[in-house]
Design a binder for these strands. Structure first.
Lengths: 146, 146
DNA sequence: CTGATTATCAGGTATACCTGACTATTTTGT
DNA sequence: ACAAAATAGTCAGGTATACCTGATAATCAG
């Protein structure tokens, strides 16, 4: 098998390898910080609540682009694990508001800390300018490739 | 939800978004080229055979880092779809050699053509230098991040 | 009071793997 | 030369993840 990062390696594969590497590092740091029971898909819930706590299930589902039933499953799991809780919506008795618990907030803080550490490691590795260029190139690809 | 490619977006997320974009484009081009029946995991088989046709099942499994049973499943599927075929190994009657069929070879050619088109689109988008810098940065992350 | 909306219950599908047990061979050690 | 051990592949069945559809009860809005 040839060197997977040689000149002929397709750029999409380089993107995948680099992404896998960073997420492996993040995963490892999270494990070391004692967050061992959440899965990637739980991010669908946690990251939206980090921006706006107390969203309704349907809003979460819409934002994540999945069905309310699927979102309900993730919320069930996170509720069992103690990261979120359902509270009644006082204005609409059909609805429930999904809130982060203390554990959920702490977990989000740890995740952001870990992400910050990886960001710092990338800056050490590449330097400020090259990291900035990388981020710009990635944003350009995401926004403009067709 | 904030702009997913703003300044605060974690670099791993930018990597993931950019990768998803490129692979969506590749997937779409493959569909348009009439390759609609293979799944990403079949790449485990196809790409290794592209480099070295006639590998044994166990060699493929080792190279892909999965069990021979799992590799057997992918080979079964690709054989049913007509992309590969099992031929006896004349030197070892336990073993079989996995070969690309004409259809399999043509499919690999189409995939490389599509990958080439995406590579060209990236070069148009970023320019030769910035694409080269991007690739270098990605390789550095893959090889050196810890 | 009819129709839409919120959430949930029940059950299903696709993907990408895995383990354990087995047969047919080949290789190894005596 | 030959028994024991290793190897190649397959059969059967299982697990985890990330979704989905359809149906239904409660509630709200016009």
């Amino acid at each position: 098998m040839p060197d997977p990062t040689d000149d002929r390696t397709p750029t999409p594969r380089l993107l995948s390898l680099a992404y896998n590497k960073t997420s492996a590092v993040i995963y490892q740091h999270l494990q070391e910080s004692g967050i061992t029971d959440t899965r990637p898909s739980h991010g669908n819930v946690m990251e939206h609540l980090a921006f706006e706590d107390g969203l309704r299930l349907n809003d979460l589902a819409t934002r994540a682009g999945i069905t309310p039933q699927s979102m309900g499953q993730f919320v069930d799991e996170l509720e069992d694990l103690g990261y979120v809780e359902r509270r009644p919506d006082l204005d609409d008795r059909r609805a429930k508001r999904i809130h982060l618990t203390r554990k959920g907030k702490r977990s989000n803080q740890v995740e952001w800390k870990v992400i910050g550490e990886v960001e710092a490691a990338l800056e050490t590795l590449l330097g400020k300018k090259r990291l900035g260029d990388l981020r710009k190139a990635l944003a350009t690809i995401t926004d403009s490739l067709s």
